[in-house]
Design a binder for these strands. Structure first.
Length: 601
RNA sequence: GGAGCAGUGGUGUAGAGGCCUAACAUGCCAGCCUGUCACGCUGGAGAUCGCGGGUUCGAAUCCCGUCUGCUCCGCCA
């Protein structure tokens, strides 16, 4: 029943046919979207990448083709030749671009049969993602998924074209490289030739790209896969794609606008959206203070307000003692939320608790005045001062968190987003870009008992803060910048250290001994002694960018073959155990019970 | 490492101690149908309720464990 396509040649994409083709003989090939069998007349919607076209079979047109069409089912692969004709009066389908015409089929070949798919091949399916991922090749037949991958392709093309015009050169860097002590957990690859030794897959091509600058390439870029063995999220996969860029003889004031222009070109060429430039800039300190996040969603305001001064003397011990201990007390004025029920406030409290807040104090601004379990601890004057500072009007709900600054920022930052969702403050169409600048260079890690780099150990300190490097490392700001869009970190970069003495100082601050520095990064330090130009760069998360451009909620929807939350590939069933011989060749002994076979229900 | 949600014919759901011999929609199969486009009509097949244990006279339903998926915290320079 299945036939070869020998001698047939596709003349048109299904959805390219229009009234102008009426009378032409065409050959199209594709999949059966739907078959409507009226007995003596059969309609099939034929789908290819371009879309749908209706093809018609009847005894009068061709008896042989008609009989074969009776056997066709969803997702059968067909090749048909016929003439394009206009549809009869009153049967035009305005919902289809090809709705004015149909193909009267004279020859049909069934190129392949298909089992009934586990879910409909159409947009907006509501199917367990496990099933979609197991049959990803069917999931990707759906138009919305094809659209996502096409947007991804077009975006990558605009990136390449733009950077090429700016004199950047695409250079490949190794996938098998050296494990580094800083940063995320590495994916390791055992070396057969060097028993007991391992390559690491790159977390990013950071040092290679800096070395292309030492190599005099001046402008490098690469669309490159990166690997980090950390737990997954909706916007985090263990392997992900970056647009990686590095440039010599550049300062922030040249680099940032150049990157903005690229982003603007992407949105304009791929989505037809014009962006306002320059993007706004906000310092890290301001972002944390006002929004409790280093990647604030700026589509709405709803700022955090520091009320420590107003509450430091109140009788409410939680507030006063936190202020005394050097903590923070901050508030959000949720406009018009005074009517929130006990249950709703409990839900908000739970949100805050996820981020470590021990409680959520509140004041409801009712028509009868402020109502709150903590009001009794305030004098009239103290309360008035607080309400004035927060611009509290009747109908408002004031929410307070008192804790260490990190907890206050995290809890109120999350609450701010939650309130924005509940109050419908977010316009899904709006695009709010911002550069976050003046990041701290270092952060003290109490667990490790040392400073760690916020960005990475190769980021240059700001010149005016250099003198603090030894006396007060935590105060040093970095020449680093992140690009944030609608609360998502799209990319980040920095100007780099390019002098051996400063890089050594940096390693020392991070607790690396001179021996460790030499062992792990000796090649970099050596390279810096051979005339390294000032340089800097940036890396964009391609998956996240496409996610935002396509309006999806997870990067899995813009990656052809993504992994589940447990970093598994449902389609090929990876990872998997390997043959004992493979392990012997690698001098590896496995020390845990073999993974149980998955219960594939 | 932790918290929450979910798992019932192919798919999406309902059922929350006995009414279940498990319901509905859709898909699937067969028959009929020459203007449909979520075609229509008639009939039919299809599920040991993720897995294991327990409580009970009786478990899809309650309890314990476990697996898988999703969201989040930690983690992600």
């Amino acid at each position: 029943m299945v036939e070869m396509m020998t001698g047939m040649k596709r003349t048109h994409a299904c959805a390219s046919l229009r009234a102008q083709h009426i009378g032409e003989t065409v050959t199209v090939m594709g999949w059966v979207q739907r078959r409507r069998d009226h007995g003596g007349l059969i309609f099939i919607d034929l789908r290819d990448r371009s879309g749908l076209v209706q093809i018609v079979f009847s005894e009068d047109l061709d008896a042989d083709a008609f009989r074969k069409a009776e056997a066709a089912r969803n997702e059968y692969v067909l090749a048909v030749t016929g003439s394009v004709r206009s549809r009869p009066e009153g049967t035009v389908n305005a919902n289809l671009p090809t709705g004015e015409i149909e193909i009267a089929v004279r020859e049909l070949r069934i190129l392949n049969a298909a089992k009934t798919p586990p879910f409909y091949i159409e947009d907006g399916v509501d199917v367990d993602e496990m099933v979609r991922l197991k049959y990803r090749y069917l999931d990707l037949r759906r138009p919305e998924m094809q659209k996502n991958l096409i947007i991804r392709h077009k975006t990558a093309k605009v990136m390449r074209d733009y950077l090429d015009r700016q004199g950047f050169i695409e250079i490949e860097t190794p996938m098998l490289t050296k494990s580094s002590p800083e940063g995320a957990r590495d994916y390791l690859v055992p070396s057969r030739v060097h028993p007991g030794e391992f390559f690491a897959l790159p977390q990013s091509p950071q040092l290679y790209k800096q070395l292309t600058m030492v190599a005099g390439m001046e402008r490098y870029f690469q669309i490159v896969r990166c690997f980090r063995d950390e737990d997954l999220r909706a916007d985090r996969q263990p392997e992900f794609t970056q647009l990686d860029i590095e440039m010599s003889f550049v300062e922030m004031e040249e680099l940032l606008p150049m990157m903005e222009a690229m982003v603007a070109q992407i949105f304009e060429e791929v989505l037809g959206k014009k962006l306002e430039r320059p993007f706004r800039r906000i310092t890290y300190a301001e972002a944390m203070n006002r929004y409790g996040s280093d990647k604030p969603d700026l589509r709405f305001d709803l700022p955090l307000v520091d009320v420590a001064e107003q509450v430091q003397d109140v009788e409410f011990k939680v507030f006063a003692s936190v202020v005394k201990a050097g903590g923070q007390v901050k508030a959000i004025n949720a406009k018009g939320c005074a009517h929130f029920s006990r249950k709703e406030i409990d839900e908000l409290t739970k949100v805050a608790a996820i981020y470590g807040a021990k409680g959520l104090a509140y004041i409801q601004m009712t028509a009868e005045g402020p109502k709150s379990p903590i009001a009794k601890f305030f004098t009239e004057a103290q309360l008035q001062a607080l309400l004035t500072q927060l611009d509290a009007q009747t109908g408002d709900l004031l929410l307070f968190v008192a804790d260490r600054p990190e907890v206050v920022a995290a809890a109120l930052g999350a609450l701010r987003l939650e309130l924005a969702r509940r109050l419908n403050l977010i316009d899904a169409e709006q695009l709010e870009f911002a550069w976050v600048v003046d990041f701290p260079l270092l952060e003290y890690d109490a667990e490790e008992g040392r400073y760690v780099a916020i960005h990475h150990p190769f980021t240059a300190p700001k010149d005016e803060d250099l003198h603090l490097l030894e006396s007060n490392p935590g105060q040093v700001r970095a020449k680093a910048y992140d690009l944030v869009l609608n609360g998502v970190e799209l990319g980040g970069g920095s100007l780099r250290i390019y002098r051996r003495d400063i890089q050594e100082k940096m390693f020392a601050l991070l607790g690396l001994s001179p021996e460790e520095s030499r062992d792990k990064f000796g090649y970099l330090l050596d390279a810096f002694e051979f005339g390294t130009p000032p340089h800097g760069g940036i890396a964009f998360g391609l998956d996240r960018l496409i996610m935002l451009m396509t309006g999806r909620e997870t990067i899995r929807d813009v990656i052809a073959f993504p992994k589940t939350q447990s970093a598994a590939d449902m389609m090929v069933d990876a990872p998997s155990v390997v043959a004992p011989r493979q392990l012997r060749e690698l001098s590896i002994k496995v020390d845990i019970p073999a993974k149980k076979p998955m219960s594939k229900a």
